[in-house]
Amino acid sequence: MGISPDAAASAGQLSAELLGAMAYGELSAFGRLSLDSRYAPTLHDRSVFAKIAVGAYGNFALLNDRLSEMGVDPEQAMLPFQRSFDHFHERTKPGDWFESVMKAYVIDTVSSDFYRAVSMFLDPTTRHFVERVASPDQATEVLRVLIRRALADDPRLASRLALWGRRLVGEALTQAQRVGMEHPLLGPLLKGGGDARAAVRSLTTELADKHGRRMTGLGLTA
C-alpha cells in the first residue's frame, strides 16, 4: 500500500518545520557564540568559541540548502520559530565567560537530543540528515573540556554553574514544550496518535533525564 497524499503532506510539513527550527537555532547560535566570545579570558578561548560559531554557521548552511532542495523557502521555514527562540536567549543571557560556556554546552546537547528524537518520525533520508547535523561532535567535547577545566581551576564554580545549568535546562525544556505545542507536528505524537500534551511531556522528561546524566558526569548536580 502506498502512502496517502495527506500522510505524505504531513510528513513533508513535519520535515520542513523541524529543519526550519534547526536552521534558525544554528543561525542564532552563530550570532550568540560570536557575541559571547567577548567574555573569553584568553585569545585562545576566544578563538575556540569562534571556531564553534563557524561550525554552527556551517550547519545552518547545510540546513538552508536542504530546505531549498525540498522546495521550501528557508526564511519562511525559520520565521515561525524566530520569536520564541529570541525570547529564550533574552531570558538566558550569560553574565560571564563560565556561564557562556555552560549555556553553549546545555543548549547544544539538549537541542541535539530534541531534534534527534523528533527525527525518528521522518523519512529515512531526512532522518539520517538530521542525525548527522544534530549529532554530538567535536564542539560538544570542546565545551565539555572547557567546563571541566574551569571547575578544576576553581572548584567554587561548581555550585554556581550547577544552579545556572538547572535554570538553562528548565528554560530549554519549557521552550521544547512550547515549540511542540505551537507546532504540533514537532511533538512526538505521530507515533500513533494520543494526547499531544502527554507526548510532549514524555519527551521533555526524557530530555531532562539525559541532561541530568551529563551534569553528573561533569560532577555537577542537575
Results as ranks from 00 to 15, higher is better:
Ala9Gln: 09
Ser10Phe: 06
Ala11Ile: 12
Ala16Val: 02
Ala16Asp: 06
Met22Leu: 03
Met22Val: 04
Tyr24Thr: 00
Tyr24Pro: 00
Glu26Asn: 07
Leu27His: 06
Leu27Val: 06
Ala29Tyr: 03
Phe30Gly: 10
Phe30Trp: 11
Arg32Glu: 08
Asp36Cys: 11
Ala40Val: 09
Leu43Glu: 07
His44Leu: 13
Val48Lys: 11
Phe49Tyr: 14
Phe49Glu: 05
Phe49Cys: 12
Ala50Glu: 15
Ile52Tyr: 06
Ala53Ser: 15
Val54Pro: 09
Val54Arg: 15
Ala56His: 09
Tyr57Pro: 00
Phe60Thr: 07
Ala61Cys: 11
Leu63Gly: 03
Leu63Glu: 03
Asn64Asp: 10
Asn64Gly: 00
Asp65Pro: 01
Asp65Arg: 11
Arg66Ser: 00
Glu75Ser: 08
Met78Ser: 01
Met78Phe: 06
Leu79Glu: 12
Pro80Leu: 04
Pro80Met: 00
Arg83Thr: 08
Phe85Glu: 03
Asp86Met: 14
Asp86Trp: 12
Asp86Tyr: 11
Asp86Pro: 00
Arg91Gln: 13
Thr92Trp: 11
Lys93Cys: 14
Pro94Gly: 10
Gly95Asn: 14
Lys103His: 10
Lys103Ala: 13
Tyr105Glu: 09
Val106Ala: 06
Asp108Thr: 11
Thr109Ile: 07
Ser112Tyr: 00
Asp113Asn: 07
Ala117Thr: 07
Met120Ala: 15
Met120Gly: 13
Phe121His: 11
Leu122Asn: 05
Asp123Ile: 05
Thr125Val: 08
His128Asn: 05
Phe129Ala: 01
Phe129Val: 00
Glu131Trp: 05
Glu131Tyr: 01
Ser135His: 09
Pro136Thr: 06
Gln138His: 15
Ala139Thr: 15
Thr140Arg: 12
Leu143Lys: 09
Arg144Glu: 11
Val145Asp: 14
Leu146His: 15
Leu146Ile: 15
Ala152Arg: 13
Arg156Trp: 10
Ala162Asn: 05
Ala162Glu: 05
Leu163Ala: 14
Leu168Thr: 10
Val169Tyr: 02
Val169Arg: 04
Val169Asn: 02
Glu171Ser: 06
Ala172Asp: 02
Ala172Phe: 04
Ala176Cys: 10
Gly180Ile: 02
Pro184Phe: 09
Pro184His: 08
Leu185Ser: 11
Gly187Ser: 11
Gly187Asp: 03
Pro188Asn: 10
Pro188Asp: 11
Pro188Met: 10
Lys191Arg: 13
Gly193Thr: 08
Gly194Pro: 03
Asp195Glu: 08
Ala196Asn: 02
Ala196Thr: 04
Arg197Gly: 01
Arg201Leu: 08
Arg201Ile: 05
Thr205Pro: 03
Thr205Arg: 14
Asp209Pro: 03
Asp209Met: 13
Asp209Thr: 15
Lys210Leu: 12
His211Phe: 13
Arg213Gln: 14
Arg214Pro: 03
Arg214Phe: 04
Thr216Lys: 10
Gly217Ile: 14
Gly219Ile: 08
Leu220Cys: 08
Thr221Gly: 01
Thr221Pro: 01
